[in-house]
Amino acid sequence: MFTGIIEDLGIVTNLKNEQDNLHLTVKSQITSELKIDQSVSHNGICLTVVAITEDSYVVTAIKETINKTNIGDLKIGDIINLERAMKLGDRLDGHIVQGHVDQVGICEDIREDNGSWLFTFSYDSSSGNVTIEKGSATVNGVSLTVVNSEKNRFSVAIIPYTYEHTNFKYFKIGSKVNLEFDVLGKYIQKLYEARL
């Protein structure tokens, strides 16, 4: 379980395919605090640490993860958002984030807005995922409040701190992002569909 508050930006230093799996090596300032078997969110994808060196660690993504996220598009040198799992009893500064990406979205628009930024993302709504204004959504692991909500797109406002301390500053129109929709909203949507 995560909060969507990014702790560090990691750098992808190696990618290795082994059968259907993808092993990522990530250089990070939090490496010294990690341990093997620990869950870490990588652009919103919960992955398990399987090896640690001095300033880098390795995680493995299976075929299911590669198919449902943008992890297969990563290249050496890419910057990714990192968050360790929350501790029981800590403040929940973001919202409840599972680290289970629902689908990939596309950055459709980026606008500077007098000291902040407005990012708009589109997604395939046929899978039943929804957003609501002032509800929560997670983009590349970042906990955000939805500003504008439509059937297959939504916008979020990004403050300067978030822009500087996440990989939002590297997004371009057309960038693929990992989306995790609000867990309570997903349950309500399923219950609603079942009653119809």
Rank of each mutant, 00 (worst) to 15 (best):
Val156Cys: 04
Cys107Arg: 05
Gly185Asp: 03
Asn114Phe: 08
Ile110Ser: 07
Asn178Thr: 07
Arg195Trp: 11
Val59Arg: 11
Glu133Cys: 08
Ala85Arg: 09
Leu34Ala: 04
Asp93Cys: 13
Glu150Gly: 09
Ile66Leu: 13
Glu83Trp: 11
Val97Leu: 08
Ile110His: 08
Ala85His: 09
Asn129His: 13
Glu64Ser: 09
Tyr170Asn: 10
Leu22Thr: 02
Asp124Ser: 00
Phe2Gln: 05
Gly135Pro: 00
Asp73Gly: 02
Asn21Tyr: 14
Asn140Ser: 13
Val97Asn: 03
Glu33Phe: 06
Tyr170Asp: 08
Gln19Ala: 15
Gly115Glu: 08
Ala194Lys: 15
Glu180Leu: 12
Lys68Val: 04
Asp90Leu: 09
Thr145Lys: 00
Tyr170Ala: 06
Asp102Leu: 00
Asp20Leu: 12
Phe119Lys: 09
Ile80Glu: 07
Lys63Pro: 10
Glu112Trp: 04
Asp8Leu: 04
Thr65Ile: 00
Gly77Cys: 05
Leu191Val: 14
Ser39Lys: 02
Ile5Asn: 06
Glu180Tyr: 14
Gly99Asp: 07
Thr120Met: 12
Glu133Ile: 05
Ile110Pro: 03
Pro160Ala: 09
Ser32Val: 06
Gln189Lys: 06
Glu18Trp: 02
Gly72Arg: 04
Ser28Met: 08
Ser136Trp: 01
Tyr163Glu: 14
His165Gln: 14
Leu74Glu: 09
Val146His: 11
Thr13Tyr: 13
Asn81Val: 13
Ser155Lys: 10
Lys151Asn: 12
Ile45Gly: 03
Leu144Ile: 01
Thr48Gly: 04
Gly10Ser: 05
Gln98Ile: 00
Ser143Tyr: 07
Tyr187Ala: 07
Asn14Gln: 15
Phe181Val: 00
Gly135Asp: 00
Val58Glu: 14
Gly77Ser: 08
Val49Thr: 14
Ile71His: 01
Gly128His: 08
Gln189Val: 05
Ser136Cys: 10
Thr138Ser: 15
Gly77Thr: 05
Glu7Cys: 09
Ile106Trp: 03
Ile96Val: 14
Glu150Leu: 11
Ile158Tyr: 00
Ile6Gly: 08
Leu9Val: 10
Gly94Leu: 11
Leu22Arg: 08
Val58Cys: 11
Arg111Gly: 05
Val50Gln: 14
Val142Asn: 03
Ile71Leu: 11
Thr69Leu: 04
Val139Leu: 15
Asn129Asp: 10
Ile71Arg: 02
Asn152Met: 01
Cys46Thr: 01
Tyr123His: 02
Thr53Trp: 09
Lys190Val: 03
Asp182Thr: 02
Phe171Ile: 05
Lys172Val: 11
Leu9Arg: 07
His100Asn: 04
Ala194Glu: 15
Ser116Ala: 08
Asn70Thr: 12
Asp90Trp: 10
Gln19Arg: 14
Tyr57Gln: 09
Lys134Ile: 02
Arg111Gln: 15
Tyr161Leu: 06
Leu118His: 09
Ser39Arg: 01
Gly89Thr: 13
Leu24Gly: 12
Ser136Gly: 08
Cys107Val: 15
Leu196Glu: 12
Asn152Lys: 06
Leu74Met: 13
